[in-house]
Amino acid sequence: MTSRDSEDVLGTAAAWRAAGETVALATVVETWGSSPRPAGSRMAVTASGRMAGSVSGGCIEGAVADAAKQTMATGAPQLLDFGISDERAWEVGLACGGKLKVFVEKLS
C-alpha cells in the first residue's frame, strides 16, 4: 500500500488530463518566514473548477486558481509573488503570514 491518495497531486492531475480536462499545476518554489506549505507543495486545478492539493493554508488558493485560468488559456507559465512587502500592501496572503512564490504551468 502506498500513498496514492489525497497527497498524490501529480497522479490526480495526470488522471484529469487523461480524462480530457484542461489542467494547470501550481508549485510553491520559494518561501520566506512562516509560510504554511514548504517549497515543492503542489496544487492542480482544472478549467472546469476542480482543485487538488494546496500551496498555502487556504489563503492564496483562490488567487492562484484565477492565475491558473489565464495560464490554461494562453499556455504561458507565470511566476506569482505573494506576501507582505509592507503592512498594507496586499491583503492576499496576510492571514497565512510569510511570503512565497508560486510557479503556475499548464499541463500541455
Partner: peptide, 10 residues
C-alpha cells in the same frame, strides 16, 4: 509541463 515529462515523472 509536457506530457512526456509528466509520464516519465510518474
Amino acid at each position: 509541463m509536457t506530457p512526456e515529462i509528466l509520464q516519465r515523472l510518474l
